[in-house]
Amino acid sequence: MTDRELLRLVAQGDVTAFREWYDRHSGPLFAYLLRLLRDAHLAEDVLSEAMLTVWTDARRYRGESSPRTWLYAIARNKATDRLRQRVVWPLEALDGQRVDGEAERVDTRVAVEEALKRLPPDQREVVELAFFHGFAYEEIARIVRCPLNTVKTRMFLAKQKLRAQLGDAGGRVGEAGG
């Protein structure tokens, strides 16, 4: 059953369909929220709220975007509300900072993970939505509510910083770049 079919059943109050929707999307969405919020309990709270909003608002879904994009946009909106209460984005203070003793990393995944952590949150988010969650740039623009060109620019800047980070780290990924 496709996401659209499932959402149609949820809109009709079908609890079984809602359970299927939750099982299908809760894992990846939790991963996204955890990266945004950096707090597992908070990520679970926002995940619950987003899922309950799907239950109450499924009838309002008009199909302008994919159901998954719609879900992520709802969740991100709620996560942003929570983050506003903290005044600054988590890890923002790490932007541009270097951490000593990491030059010896050889594992590509760990190197990339560490480099991602040092990106500004809005750039890291675009990289993760594109590569981890597989969203097209138009879908990302809907989720993060910004113009298409902003999404592309954030990715461009993220690439530059990742290359600088990974190149300095001396990992396999860094060596591949030109």
Partner: peptide, 27 residues
């Protein structure tokens, strides 16, 4: 080629899961 390596590394990250009982709590 470089981006493919970055993308593969991002995709191969372990995926964290919400608490198993969260689904029951949401319901």
């Amino acid at each position: 080629a470089w981006l493919r390596e970055v993308a593969d590394a991002v995709r191969s990250r372990p995926v964290p899961s919400p608490a198993p009982e969260l689904g029951a709590r949401v319901l």
